[in-house]
């Protein structure tokens, strides 16, 4: 299917380390979907790691400045799309401090040689999707009844400083539902995946992941859908149950729904093979 005819809008894009490396399938499918709905993602020139959980865990000043460097690279007049929910929180927190603390603003201007852009909008993939409204002439059965457990992890829980920002509650259900997938009702859509503890304390994380997976299984889901590469990875690598459901990036299912060129290589990167399910539901050839 050709992309909808409309002028492409340029958006600055911060992929973050995970999407640039371990979750390339997330990156590619996200770009496909954005192009399809009329957004041209332009990588933020020379972006650096947002500091990840580690910088703010042991050095919050460093975390702030690492995030600021990225903000300073964003060209004026375009929103900045941040793919990873954690990177997004880091960049938003830095922006919040720049907007509310004059000394921080001054230091920023001195260091990066440019004023803080008061209009820079940091947006999530979800906002782009939402901004396109109802989805034109898409086939309403494109996802063929696929039963999924919508898994947001901690992305719905913002720090108090950001509590007035938009919440994305229910968006995956609404979007994928519009394409004929069925969200199951289940207890753990917002349960934390354990994030970085997965490396140093896997034995703490596995029971958390097992609980999530069991919840999805018991609710009758055939798969989980995430919007975070870290959640995706932990669901795949730290589940100790025999019976594991495959997990999709939200963007992968949208790509299927929009019938953009789908690359099997995305699914080949999954550690829990989603191909049998996709075939059974006749979602891939």
């Amino acid at each position: 299917m050709t992309p909808m005819l409309r002028e492409m809008q340029e958006i600055s894009y911060f992929p973050g380390c995970s999407l640039a490396t371990s979750a390339k399938e997330n990156n590619q499918s996200l770009k496909e979907v954005c192009a399809h709905i009329g957004f041209n993602l332009v990588d933020l020139q020379d972006w650096n790691c947002c500091g990840s959980s580690s910088a703010h865990s042991i050095n919050s000043e460093l975390a702030f400045h690492l995030a600021c460097r990225n903000l300073s690279l964003a060209p004026a007049g375009r929103p900045l799309l941040v793919a990873c929910p954690s990177c997004s929180t880091r960049l938003r927190m830095a922006q919040h401090r720049l907007h509310t603390v004059p000394e921080a603003r001054e230091a920023y201007e001195l260091r990066w040689g440019r004023p803080v852009d008061p209009d820079l909008k940091i947006i999530h993939f979800f906002e782009l999707i939402q901004s396109r409204g109802p989805f034109g002439r898409q086939p309403v059965d494109a996802l063929n009844g696929l039963k999924f457990a919508p898994y947001y992890g901690c992305m719905l829980a913002q720090p108090p400083a950001l509590r007035y920002e938009r919440s994305y509650h229910g968006l995956m259900e609404k979007m994928l539902g519009a394409f004929g997938a069925q969200a199951v009702s289940w207890p753990y859509p917002a349960r934390c995946c354990g994030t970085f503890l997965s490396v140093a304390r896997p034995e703490v994380v596995s029971p958390m992941i097992d609980t999530i997976m069991r919840g999805a299984l018991e609710a009758g889901a055939e798969c989980l859908v995430t919007a975070c590469a870290m959640c995706h990875l932990n669901l795949e690598i730290r589940c100790n149950l025999k019976n594991r459901l495959p997990t999709f990036h939200f963007s992968e299912l949208l790509a299927i729904a929009y019938r953009t060129p789908i690359q099997k290589s995305w699914f080949a990167k999954h550690l829990v093979d989603p191909m049998p399910l996709l075939k059974e539901r006749r979602l891939v050839a």
Binding site: C49, S54, I58, L62, L66, A200, R201
Partner: peptide, 28 residues
Amino acid sequence: NETGILNFHKEVLDSIQRYGRTHKLEIM
């Protein structure tokens, strides 16, 4: 008492210091 977690954070920061980004294989 949680030296593993601290060491992990240190490796991540060292990686960012070296490359500006995280290099997961090397961190691990």
